[in-house]
Amino acid sequence: MSTYESWPTRFEAELVRLGVPEPRARRLTEDTAAQAAEQAADPAGLFGPAHLYARHLVTELSAPVDPEPPRFATAGPVLLHLSAVGKRYRRRTVLRDVDLTVRGGQVAAIVGANGCGKSTLLRICAGLTRPDSGTVRRTRRVGYVPQDGGTAGWLTADEHFTLFGAAAGVVSRRARSTGAHLAARLAWRPDPGQRVQQLSGGTRQKLNLVLGELHGPDLLLLDEPYQGFDQGSYLDFWRQVHAWRDAGRAVVVVTHLLHDLNNVDHVLDLGER
């Protein structure tokens, strides 16, 4: 798609790509343009990047009237499938015969004691660590959010958006606007001059989350991503997880907080060490 296409054209194309029938996509585009015209605003400035707003709108339109989140939403295609996965480090068996299937529109939690291999399993799902046994099938587009690190302390949030955007083949300007938009959903507005090493732990984790989602992955792998979040950020985080799920994405989250399990569709307990 050309970078120079107008915002409504890109918005309509993204709606069609997400499965909205063409006539309905056209009507939604006209309505959105009219809404922007009423406020005498540029659609990009009012709604953010076209592709993200299209996804957001599709999620909103498909959300149920019931205020309760759809705990067992209609499952989509399988996006991650692990069968009898095992991993050893020297003589120590870290994982043995782990099975897990996660479909689009589902959230799975990985729980277990410290050192039981939760993070190792997530790295295997990402493809950063090779399993010693078993098979893994996984969708190609994946976002990974590590428990800590994963950012460069001397760069700003905007520069991270540019860097990760470049890795995904997205031009800097678009990556920055997408990053700012995703950050806003976590109630965070990045300061252009502030380096990552100057951010609080919670805000750094928000950046980590945004970077994991920046390239629009189908499967999100989150390793205790809410470290350092305050109560409001924690709620924003789960709201965001539900939005991803409702948009048909699959989410796998490593957690040790048992009350998180009310928010998920599957629980994989790796047990004791």
């Binding site: 990402a126 493809g127 950063l128 994946v142 976002g143 990974y144 590590p146 690190g149 994963g150 950012t151 460069a152 860097l163 990760f164 470049a166 890795a167 995904a168 083949g169 970077l211 994991g212 920046l214 390239h215």
Partner: peptide, 12 residues
């Protein structure tokens, strides 16, 4: 060191 694996996963 911390950023590179994520960048690789993103497509770099």
């Amino acid at each position: 060191r911390g950023v590179d694996p994520r960048l690789r996963l993103t497509g770099a």
